[in-house]
């Protein structure tokens, strides 16, 4: 079962995989070079994307992280063998990824860049020109200790990560310095991905309690602000507890709160 021969990737989707397991790809098993590909069953093999926690090896894919195996089919035909495989793992340490939206803490100003702590192995840099409406003369008002919501422009293992607070058209689109007050805390990366999923139940249930502001960073940081400190802390406690609660337990806890 563990590693050895390996199992077809499709049969392991949704199951727990461990490092060292080998996932065989159907295209490798059924590859038939003798016959001409005819009909829909032999549609050209789609492009296969190898997501986090997986590497290519001789027989197919080698798992490098423990977690649940996930698969998303390629956009077009259902017969395509391609799509994306990845491992959904529950970890705490963030590794910068290009395009990720994160919350960083300003730790210093060096020349014309800010140093940001994003929870990775290295501090990220953020140019003072990478804000909406910023010019050489009109510097943004950023102090050491401020929270910044931005996205990674450069993030790879060999280079220093670089962040920006504008999109490609120069608009802030929600990014920039996060205002005063509010509460910042850390959760596991798995919970962040769950919260950021479209139509996340937890967020929908919370939004029915009372209005609040919420910023979710892919690096595991969450910033919350509600009308009062008490309301803020209630949201914080619920979100922190979500990690270890089942859906029913969460609903019970929320029902208790909304009754008050």
């Amino acid at each position: 079962m563990a590693g050895g021969g390996g199992a077809p990737a499709e049969s392991r989707v949704g199951q727990v995989v461990l490092p060292g397991d080998v996932l065989l790809l159907p295209a490798y098993d059924e590859q038939d070079t003798e016959r001409l590909p005819l009909g829909t069953s032999a549609a050209p093999r789609g492009r296969l994307l190898c997501g986090p926690g997986l590497r290519r090896c001789a027989g197919g894919l080698l798992v490098t992280k423990c977690g649940l195996l996930r698969h998303r089919r390629a956009g077009d035909g259902a017969a395509a063998a391609g799509g994306a495989y990845w491992v959904d793992s529950q970890q705490k340490r963030y590794v910068p990824v290009k395009g990720d939206h994160v919350i960083g803490i300003v730790t210093g100003k060096v020349g014309d860049v800010f140093r940001l702590d994003v929870g990775g192995s290295e501090q990220a840099s953020l140019s003072y020109l990478a804000f909406e409406g910023a010019t050489k003369r009109n510097r943004p008002n950023v102090q050491v200790g401020d929270l910044i919501y931005g996205q990674f422009l450069v993030a790879n293992k060999d280079m220093e990560p670089e962040m920006v607070c504008i999109d490609s058209s120069g608009r802030a689109s929600g990014m920039g310095v996060i205002g005063q007050d509010g509460f910042l805390f850390k959760v596991s990366l798995g919970l962040i991905r769950k919260l950021l999923a479209p139509k996340c139940e937890i967020i929908q249930e919370l939004s029915q309690l009372y209005p609040f502001e919420l910023v979710l960073g892919m690096n595991g940081r969450i910033w919350v602000k509600a009308k009062t400190v008490q309301q803020t802390l209630i949201i914080v406690n619920i979100l922190e507890a979500c990690e270890y609660m089942t859906a029913e337990q969460r609903k019970q806890a929320l029902a208790k709160l909304s009754g008050n």
Partner: peptide, 11 residues
């Protein structure tokens, strides 16, 4: 190592 999610070639 497993829990921390570090990339391992095998256990």
């Amino acid at each position: 190592l497993l829990d921390a999610g570090l990339p391992l070639s095998s256990l």
